[in-house]
Computed example of a mutant assay.
Amino acid sequence: MRITVFRRLMTEEFGSLRAEMLAKDHVLTSLGGRTVDQALAAGVAVKDIWRAVCDDFEVPPERR
């Protein structure tokens, strides 16, 4: 998954403002206590980050 696709999915799921805020502030324990932005900077696979976000926010399977 490309980062642009990931960002689009985040915006579609949470809205642009909330998606940006979540990426910056929400800590994902399944990614070693990193935020989305920190995980991206650390080179974590984008698909793994999306899965972690979906798990934390209980995104329905049809939108994952």
Score class of each variant (00 low, 15 high):
residue 25 D to T: 14
residue 49 I to S: 03
residue 63 R to P: 03
residue 24 K to N: 13
residue 60 P to C: 13
residue 9 L to S: 08
residue 6 F to A: 09
residue 32 G to A: 12
residue 52 A to W: 02
residue 62 E to F: 15
residue 49 I to P: 01
residue 23 A to C: 15
residue 17 L to A: 15
residue 62 E to M: 10
residue 24 K to S: 14
residue 58 E to C: 10
residue 49 I to A: 04
residue 6 F to L: 08
residue 24 K to R: 15
residue 10 M to H: 00
residue 54 C to I: 08
residue 3 I to C: 04
residue 38 Q to R: 13
residue 21 M to H: 11
residue 21 M to W: 13
residue 17 L to C: 11
residue 55 D to A: 13
residue 49 I to K: 04
residue 49 I to D: 00
residue 38 Q to H: 10
residue 59 V to W: 04
residue 23 A to E: 07
residue 19 A to R: 02
residue 48 D to N: 12
residue 44 V to H: 00
residue 57 F to N: 06
residue 64 R to Y: 06
residue 5 V to C: 10
residue 10 M to Q: 04
residue 31 L to E: 02
residue 16 S to W: 09
residue 36 V to R: 01
residue 28 L to R: 01
residue 29 T to H: 07
residue 35 T to W: 00
residue 52 A to C: 07
residue 31 L to P: 04
residue 22 L to S: 01
residue 8 R to T: 13
residue 40 L to K: 06
residue 38 Q to T: 10
residue 37 D to K: 13
residue 10 M to E: 00
residue 43 G to M: 09
residue 57 F to T: 07
residue 38 Q to P: 06
residue 51 R to M: 13
residue 44 V to E: 08
residue 1 M to G: 12
residue 63 R to C: 05
residue 31 L to T: 05
residue 55 D to P: 04
residue 28 L to K: 00
residue 58 E to H: 14
residue 42 A to F: 10
residue 48 D to F: 00
residue 39 A to K: 02
residue 5 V to W: 12
residue 13 E to A: 11
residue 56 D to T: 08
residue 33 G to Y: 03
residue 11 T to C: 10
residue 14 F to E: 02
